[in-house]
Design a binder for these strands. Sequence first.
DNA 1: TTCATATGTAACCATTTGGTTGTACGTTAG
DNA 2: CTAACGTACAACCAAATGGTTACATATGAA
Lengths: 116, 116
Amino acid sequence: MVTYELSDTDVDRIFQALADATRRDIVSRTLTDELSVTALAGRYDMSFAAVQKHVAVLERATLVVKRRRGREQMVQANPEAVRRAARLLDAYEKIWHDRAERIGDLLSDTTKGTEQ
Amino acid sequence: MVTYELSDTDVDRIFQALADATRRDIVSRTLTDELSVTALAGRYDMSFAAVQKHVAVLERATLVVKRRRGREQMVQANPEAVRRAARLLDAYEKIWHDRAERIGDLLSDTTKGTEQ
DNA sequence: TTCATATGTAACCATTTGGTTGTACGTTAG
DNA sequence: CTAACGTACAACCAAATGGTTACATATGAA
């Protein structure tokens, strides 16, 4: 598995992009269907320009990609980016799990004299 | 496993809180060590008030909890919240995976006449 | 009690965000 | 070719964000 190096700014952009319900919905929809910006705009109670901006935020965060089809721009989620975000959080979980395990060891392991 | 229902606003707050490198670092550190706000503030090149605000943002998002110890407030990450965030992203991955599987089935399954 | 420490909060500021409307431009349909 | 459509972008606005300094409050030490 190839894991790309994400800068702090990259990660900022990913979580920032996910911190809005409309944008999460766009990701959700475009995971299964490739939708034009106009088609997406029709689904939300806001201007086309607003939706277009949301798509741009997602694009900057690499959470979606756009592909030209005639005069339309088809939006599709990038599952790899979603995956990377999930793995980032997994890493936090792992830190915690390792610590919990260490504490467990300290509490149960009474044979060795490594405690201070 | 108990899964709490998260509102859009809850999720907004979680991802918003994670969209800042300082706050991610605070989560990371307090997963292993319980640290006072002052101890945390000492580690970043910004005012105490700024760090205190970051902790407040994390607290509102339930990503950390505070516990009083004498005159200090000890900050500790809440692994359950991190976990919930990770599972949210897993759900997106699952949507994509299911769709990929459906497409795979359509392409490979030539024996049944279920295609439209 | 008094003082120092740890925290919280208010007021302020610059920048970003999330929305708007209007306009310009590229592409396709007729 | 021309008109309609789909998209992009600029200018604007209100609200939120991320930082500051200053002050207020709570707790522990002596």
